[in-house]
Amino acid sequence: MKRHLISTADLTREDALLILDTAEQMAQVSTRSVKKLPTLRGRTVVNLFFEDSTRTRTSFEVAEKRLSADVINFSAKGSSVSKGESLKDTALTLQAMGADAVVIRHSASGAPKLLADSDWLHGSVVNAGDGTHEHPTQALLDAFTMRSHLNPGVGHDLVGRRVTIVGDVLHSRVARSNVHLLHTLGAEVTLVAPPTLMPFGVETWPCQTSYDLDAALTKADAVMMLRVQRERMNAAYFPTQREYTRRYGLDARRLALLPQHALVMHPGPMVRGMEIESSIADSDRAVIVEQVANGVSVRMAVLYLLLGGSEPAITTSSANTSEENGK
Protein backbone atom coordinates (compact mmCIF):
# COMPACT_ATOMS: atom_id res chain seq x y z
CA MET A 1 0.00 0.00 0.00
CA LYS A 2 -0.21 2.60 -0.04
CA ARG A 3 -1.82 5.22 -1.92
CA HIS A 4 -4.34 2.70 -3.12
CA LEU A 5 -6.68 0.09 -1.70
CA ILE A 6 -6.45 -2.88 -4.01
CA SER A 7 -6.40 -5.92 -1.76
CA THR A 8 -7.02 -6.62 1.91
CA ALA A 9 -3.84 -8.70 1.84
CA ASP A 10 -1.93 -5.38 1.64
CA LEU A 11 -3.37 -4.16 4.95
CA THR A 12 -1.42 -4.59 8.17
CA ARG A 13 -3.28 -5.16 11.42
CA GLU A 14 -2.66 -1.49 12.31
CA ASP A 15 -4.01 -0.29 8.95
CA ALA A 16 -7.13 -2.41 9.32
CA LEU A 17 -7.80 -1.24 12.88
CA LEU A 18 -7.21 2.40 11.89
CA ILE A 19 -9.84 2.06 9.16
CA LEU A 20 -12.33 0.37 11.52
CA ASP A 21 -11.74 2.93 14.30
CA THR A 22 -12.09 5.82 11.85
CA ALA A 23 -15.30 4.27 10.51
CA GLU A 24 -16.59 4.18 14.09
CA GLN A 25 -16.34 7.99 14.23
CA MET A 26 -17.73 8.38 10.69
CA ALA A 27 -20.81 6.43 11.74
CA GLN A 28 -21.70 9.30 14.07
CA VAL A 29 -22.00 11.68 11.14
CA SER A 30 -24.96 9.68 9.85
CA THR A 31 -26.85 10.43 13.06
CA ARG A 32 -26.42 14.22 12.97
CA SER A 33 -28.75 16.81 11.50
CA VAL A 34 -26.06 17.98 9.05
CA LYS A 35 -24.75 14.73 7.54
CA LYS A 36 -21.76 16.30 5.89
CA LEU A 37 -18.10 16.97 6.62
CA PRO A 38 -15.98 19.53 4.75
CA THR A 39 -12.95 17.23 4.65
CA LEU A 40 -12.68 16.43 0.91
CA ARG A 41 -13.96 19.78 -0.38
CA GLY A 42 -12.49 20.48 -3.78
CA ARG A 43 -11.37 16.89 -4.38
CA THR A 44 -12.78 14.98 -7.31
CA VAL A 45 -13.63 11.30 -7.01
CA VAL A 46 -14.63 9.28 -10.06
CA ASN A 47 -16.76 6.17 -9.66
CA LEU A 48 -15.65 4.08 -12.61
CA PHE A 49 -18.03 1.13 -12.88
CA PHE A 50 -17.51 -1.31 -15.73
CA GLU A 51 -19.85 -3.83 -14.10
CA ASP A 52 -23.39 -3.55 -12.77
CA SER A 53 -23.73 -2.50 -9.18
CA THR A 54 -26.36 -0.67 -7.21
CA ARG A 55 -25.39 -1.18 -3.59
CA THR A 56 -21.64 -0.57 -3.84
CA ARG A 57 -21.83 2.38 -6.21
CA THR A 58 -24.56 4.09 -4.23
CA SER A 59 -22.69 3.44 -1.00
CA PHE A 60 -19.49 4.97 -2.37
CA GLU A 61 -21.43 7.91 -3.76
CA VAL A 62 -23.10 8.62 -0.40
CA ALA A 63 -19.72 8.33 1.37
CA GLU A 64 -18.06 10.70 -1.11
CA LYS A 65 -20.84 13.25 -0.82
CA ARG A 66 -20.84 13.13 2.98
CA LEU A 67 -17.16 14.10 2.80
CA SER A 68 -17.98 16.97 0.37
CA ALA A 69 -16.01 15.52 -2.55
CA ASP A 70 -17.08 16.26 -6.12
CA VAL A 71 -18.47 13.01 -7.49
CA ILE A 72 -18.44 11.89 -11.09
CA ASN A 73 -20.24 8.67 -11.96
CA PHE A 74 -18.94 6.86 -14.96
CA SER A 75 -20.57 3.63 -15.98
CA ALA A 76 -19.45 1.59 -18.95
CA LYS A 77 -22.92 1.40 -20.41
CA GLY A 78 -23.62 4.46 -22.46
CA SER A 79 -20.01 5.61 -22.42
CA SER A 80 -17.15 5.45 -24.91
CA VAL A 81 -16.24 2.06 -23.48
CA SER A 82 -19.15 0.56 -25.40
CA LYS A 83 -17.58 2.12 -28.51
CA GLY A 84 -14.38 0.19 -27.82
CA GLU A 85 -12.30 2.54 -25.71
CA SER A 86 -9.54 0.82 -23.70
CA LEU A 87 -9.03 1.10 -19.94
CA LYS A 88 -5.87 3.08 -20.61
CA ASP A 89 -7.61 5.72 -22.68
CA THR A 90 -10.42 6.00 -20.17
CA ALA A 91 -7.84 6.47 -17.41
CA LEU A 92 -5.93 9.10 -19.39
CA THR A 93 -9.17 10.99 -19.93
CA LEU A 94 -9.97 10.94 -16.22
CA GLN A 95 -6.44 12.07 -15.38
CA ALA A 96 -6.77 14.98 -17.78
CA MET A 97 -9.97 15.95 -15.99
CA GLY A 98 -8.14 16.05 -12.68
CA ALA A 99 -9.47 13.04 -10.79
CA ASP A 100 -7.98 12.81 -7.29
CA ALA A 101 -9.26 9.29 -6.77
CA VAL A 102 -10.84 6.58 -8.86
CA VAL A 103 -13.18 3.99 -7.40
CA ILE A 104 -13.16 1.16 -9.90
CA ARG A 105 -15.26 -1.94 -10.43
CA HIS A 106 -14.30 -4.18 -13.30
CA SER A 107 -15.22 -7.65 -14.47
CA ALA A 108 -11.55 -8.47 -15.06
CA SER A 109 -9.54 -9.52 -12.02
CA GLY A 110 -6.52 -7.25 -11.68
CA ALA A 111 -7.91 -4.20 -13.50
CA PRO A 112 -7.55 -1.93 -10.41
CA LYS A 113 -3.99 -3.17 -9.88
CA LEU A 114 -3.17 -2.41 -13.50
CA LEU A 115 -4.53 1.10 -13.02
CA ALA A 116 -2.67 1.62 -9.75
CA ASP A 117 0.67 0.42 -11.12
CA SER A 118 0.37 2.43 -14.31
CA ASP A 119 1.30 6.06 -14.74
CA TRP A 120 -1.96 6.78 -16.53
CA LEU A 121 -3.49 8.17 -13.36
CA HIS A 122 -1.87 10.02 -10.48
CA GLY A 123 -4.74 9.73 -8.02
CA SER A 124 -5.58 6.99 -5.54
CA VAL A 125 -7.24 3.84 -6.80
CA VAL A 126 -9.86 2.12 -4.68
CA ASN A 127 -10.92 -1.37 -5.70
CA ALA A 128 -14.71 -1.69 -5.60
CA GLY A 129 -14.65 -5.29 -6.82
CA ASP A 130 -12.57 -6.81 -9.61
CA GLY A 131 -13.77 -10.02 -11.25
CA THR A 132 -13.39 -12.93 -8.89
CA HIS A 133 -10.37 -11.38 -7.14
CA GLU A 134 -11.11 -8.92 -4.32
CA HIS A 135 -13.67 -6.52 -2.89
CA PRO A 136 -11.77 -4.93 0.02
CA THR A 137 -14.33 -2.38 1.24
CA GLN A 138 -16.94 -5.15 1.51
CA ALA A 139 -14.58 -7.17 3.72
CA LEU A 140 -13.90 -4.07 5.83
CA LEU A 141 -17.59 -3.42 6.37
CA ASP A 142 -18.12 -7.10 7.22
CA ALA A 143 -15.31 -6.95 9.79
CA PHE A 144 -16.74 -3.68 11.14
CA THR A 145 -20.18 -5.29 11.54
CA MET A 146 -18.68 -8.37 13.24
CA ARG A 147 -16.58 -6.27 15.59
CA SER A 148 -19.52 -4.08 16.64
CA HIS A 149 -21.39 -7.23 17.77
CA LEU A 150 -18.67 -9.63 18.86
CA ASN A 151 -15.97 -7.39 20.36
CA PRO A 152 -17.15 -3.77 20.40
CA GLY A 153 -14.74 -0.95 21.12
CA VAL A 154 -12.07 1.22 19.50
CA GLY A 155 -8.83 -0.67 18.92
CA HIS A 156 -10.42 -4.10 19.33
CA ASP A 157 -9.77 -6.91 16.86
CA LEU A 158 -11.43 -10.28 16.20
CA VAL A 159 -8.91 -12.62 17.84
CA GLY A 160 -10.36 -16.08 18.44
CA ARG A 161 -13.69 -15.37 16.75
CA ARG A 162 -14.85 -18.05 14.32
CA VAL A 163 -16.33 -17.05 10.98
CA THR A 164 -17.87 -19.51 8.53
CA ILE A 165 -18.20 -18.43 4.89
CA VAL A 166 -20.57 -20.59 2.87
CA GLY A 167 -21.35 -20.96 -0.81
CA ASP A 168 -19.84 -20.01 -4.13
CA VAL A 169 -16.33 -19.32 -2.88
CA LEU A 170 -14.86 -19.97 -6.32
CA HIS A 171 -16.42 -16.87 -7.88
CA SER A 172 -16.50 -14.76 -4.75
CA ARG A 173 -14.25 -11.73 -4.39
CA VAL A 174 -15.98 -11.09 -1.08
CA ALA A 175 -14.76 -14.41 0.32
CA ARG A 176 -11.19 -13.80 -0.80
CA SER A 177 -11.03 -10.31 0.72
CA ASN A 178 -12.67 -11.52 3.91
CA VAL A 179 -10.26 -14.43 4.37
CA HIS A 180 -7.23 -12.14 4.24
CA LEU A 181 -8.69 -9.37 6.40
CA LEU A 182 -10.23 -11.64 9.04
CA HIS A 183 -6.97 -13.58 9.27
CA THR A 184 -5.09 -10.29 9.77
CA LEU A 185 -7.53 -9.37 12.54
CA GLY A 186 -7.02 -12.71 14.25
CA ALA A 187 -10.25 -14.50 13.39
CA GLU A 188 -10.43 -18.16 12.35
CA VAL A 189 -12.16 -18.55 9.00
CA THR A 190 -13.74 -21.73 7.67
CA LEU A 191 -14.85 -21.89 4.05
CA VAL A 192 -17.70 -24.27 3.27
CA ALA A 193 -18.59 -25.02 -0.35
CA PRO A 194 -19.28 -27.90 -2.72
CA PRO A 195 -15.95 -29.29 -3.97
CA THR A 196 -16.67 -27.87 -7.42
CA LEU A 197 -17.00 -24.34 -6.02
CA MET A 198 -13.81 -24.43 -3.94
CA PRO A 199 -11.07 -22.36 -5.61
CA PHE A 200 -7.90 -23.97 -6.93
CA GLY A 201 -5.05 -23.46 -4.46
CA VAL A 202 -7.36 -22.76 -1.52
CA GLU A 203 -5.07 -24.83 0.73
CA THR A 204 -2.55 -21.97 0.60
CA TRP A 205 -5.10 -19.47 1.98
CA PRO A 206 -4.95 -18.67 5.70
CA CYS A 207 -8.17 -20.52 6.49
CA GLN A 208 -9.75 -23.96 6.86
CA THR A 209 -12.08 -25.64 4.41
CA SER A 210 -14.95 -28.04 4.84
CA TYR A 211 -17.70 -29.65 2.78
CA ASP A 212 -19.95 -30.20 5.80
CA LEU A 213 -21.99 -27.14 6.70
CA ASP A 214 -23.75 -28.55 9.79
CA ALA A 215 -20.46 -29.32 11.55
CA ALA A 216 -19.05 -25.87 10.78
CA LEU A 217 -22.11 -24.06 12.14
CA THR A 218 -22.10 -25.34 15.70
CA LYS A 219 -19.07 -23.30 16.77
CA ALA A 220 -19.42 -20.24 14.51
CA ASP A 221 -19.64 -16.66 15.85
CA ALA A 222 -20.74 -15.44 12.44
CA VAL A 223 -21.90 -17.16 9.29
CA MET A 224 -21.69 -15.43 5.93
CA MET A 225 -23.82 -16.77 3.10
CA LEU A 226 -22.58 -16.11 -0.45
CA ARG A 227 -24.70 -15.81 -3.55
CA VAL A 228 -24.27 -18.43 -6.26
CA GLN A 229 -22.96 -16.31 -9.11
CA ARG A 230 -24.75 -17.87 -12.06
CA GLU A 231 -23.64 -15.06 -14.36
CA ARG A 232 -20.02 -16.20 -13.98
CA MET A 233 -20.78 -19.90 -14.39
CA ASN A 234 -20.16 -21.51 -17.75
CA ALA A 235 -20.47 -25.09 -16.55
CA ALA A 236 -22.62 -27.18 -14.25
CA TYR A 237 -21.10 -26.90 -10.79
CA PHE A 238 -23.91 -28.74 -9.01
CA PRO A 239 -26.77 -30.97 -10.21
CA THR A 240 -29.80 -28.90 -9.23
CA GLN A 241 -30.60 -25.76 -7.29
CA ARG A 242 -32.68 -27.91 -4.92
CA GLU A 243 -29.74 -30.10 -4.06
CA TYR A 244 -27.52 -27.05 -3.48
CA THR A 245 -30.09 -25.51 -1.15
CA ARG A 246 -30.47 -28.79 0.77
CA ARG A 247 -26.72 -29.14 1.35
CA TYR A 248 -25.50 -25.54 1.55
CA GLY A 249 -28.54 -23.32 2.15
CA LEU A 250 -29.30 -21.70 5.51
CA ASP A 251 -32.70 -22.88 6.74
CA ALA A 252 -34.46 -22.91 10.10
CA ARG A 253 -32.94 -26.25 11.11
CA ARG A 254 -29.42 -24.99 10.47
CA LEU A 255 -30.12 -21.67 12.19
CA ALA A 256 -30.92 -23.68 15.33
CA LEU A 257 -27.45 -25.26 15.17
CA LEU A 258 -25.79 -21.84 15.45
CA PRO A 259 -24.85 -20.50 18.89
CA GLN A 260 -27.36 -17.95 20.24
CA HIS A 261 -25.07 -14.95 19.72
CA ALA A 262 -24.00 -15.85 16.18
CA LEU A 263 -24.62 -13.35 13.37
CA VAL A 264 -26.14 -14.19 10.00
CA MET A 265 -24.54 -12.12 7.25
CA HIS A 266 -24.89 -11.75 3.50
CA PRO A 267 -22.97 -9.35 1.24
CA GLY A 268 -25.96 -9.02 -1.10
CA PRO A 269 -27.62 -9.29 -3.48
CA MET A 270 -29.47 -12.23 -1.94
CA VAL A 271 -31.27 -14.96 -3.79
CA ARG A 272 -33.97 -15.81 -1.28
CA GLY A 273 -34.81 -19.49 -1.21
CA MET A 274 -31.44 -20.42 -2.74
CA GLU A 275 -28.60 -19.84 -0.28
CA ILE A 276 -30.78 -18.38 2.48
CA GLU A 277 -34.39 -18.98 3.49
CA SER A 278 -36.45 -15.83 3.23
CA SER A 279 -37.67 -15.88 6.83
CA ILE A 280 -34.06 -16.05 8.10
CA ALA A 281 -32.99 -13.09 5.99
CA ASP A 282 -35.76 -11.08 7.68
CA SER A 283 -35.16 -12.43 11.19
CA ASP A 284 -33.46 -10.47 13.95
CA ARG A 285 -30.44 -12.79 13.74
CA ALA A 286 -29.60 -11.32 10.33
CA VAL A 287 -27.49 -8.14 10.22
CA ILE A 288 -27.76 -7.77 6.46
CA VAL A 289 -29.32 -4.29 6.49
CA GLU A 290 -26.82 -3.17 9.10
CA GLN A 291 -24.00 -4.27 6.78
CA VAL A 292 -25.29 -1.85 4.16
CA ALA A 293 -25.42 1.05 6.63
CA ASN A 294 -21.91 0.26 7.85
CA GLY A 295 -20.72 0.25 4.25
CA VAL A 296 -21.11 4.03 4.06
CA SER A 297 -19.10 4.61 7.26
CA VAL A 298 -16.29 2.27 6.20
CA ARG A 299 -16.03 3.82 2.74
CA MET A 300 -15.93 7.30 4.28
CA ALA A 301 -13.07 6.12 6.47
CA VAL A 302 -11.12 4.67 3.53
CA LEU A 303 -11.58 7.79 1.41
CA TYR A 304 -10.63 10.07 4.30
CA LEU A 305 -7.50 8.09 5.14
CA LEU A 306 -6.39 7.90 1.49
CA LEU A 307 -7.30 11.45 0.43
CA GLY A 308 -7.75 13.55 3.56
CA GLY A 309 -4.12 14.42 4.22
CA SER A 310 -1.01 15.26 2.31
CA GLU A 311 -0.28 11.56 2.10
CA PRO A 312 -2.34 8.49 2.99
CA ALA A 313 -2.51 7.45 6.61
CA ILE A 314 -2.66 3.79 5.72
CA THR A 315 1.04 3.06 5.69
CA THR A 316 3.32 0.79 7.60
CA SER A 317 4.54 3.77 9.63
CA SER A 318 1.09 4.59 10.97
CA ALA A 319 2.26 3.84 14.51
CA ASN A 320 4.41 6.92 14.92
CA THR A 321 2.03 9.32 13.19
CA SER A 322 -0.76 8.44 15.57
CA GLU A 323 1.61 9.04 18.47
CA GLU A 324 2.63 12.45 17.25
CA ASN A 325 -0.91 13.45 16.43
CA GLY A 326 -2.26 12.17 19.70
CA LYS A 327 -4.35 15.25 19.92
Binding site: L18, D21, T22, Q25, M26, T39, Y304, L305, L306, L307, G308, G309, S310, E311, P312, A313, T315, T321, S322, N325
Partner: peptide
Amino acid sequence: LRLKPARAL
Protein backbone atom coordinates in the same frame (compact mmCIF):
# COMPACT_ATOMS: atom_id res chain seq x y z
CA LEU B 1 -5.45 18.75 6.81
CA ARG B 2 -3.80 18.84 3.40
CA LEU B 3 -0.43 19.75 4.90
CA LYS B 4 0.02 16.62 6.97
CA PRO B 5 -0.69 12.92 6.57
CA ALA B 6 -4.32 11.99 7.26
CA ARG B 7 -4.62 11.42 10.98
CA ALA B 8 -6.72 9.26 13.23
CA LEU B 9 -10.01 10.75 14.41
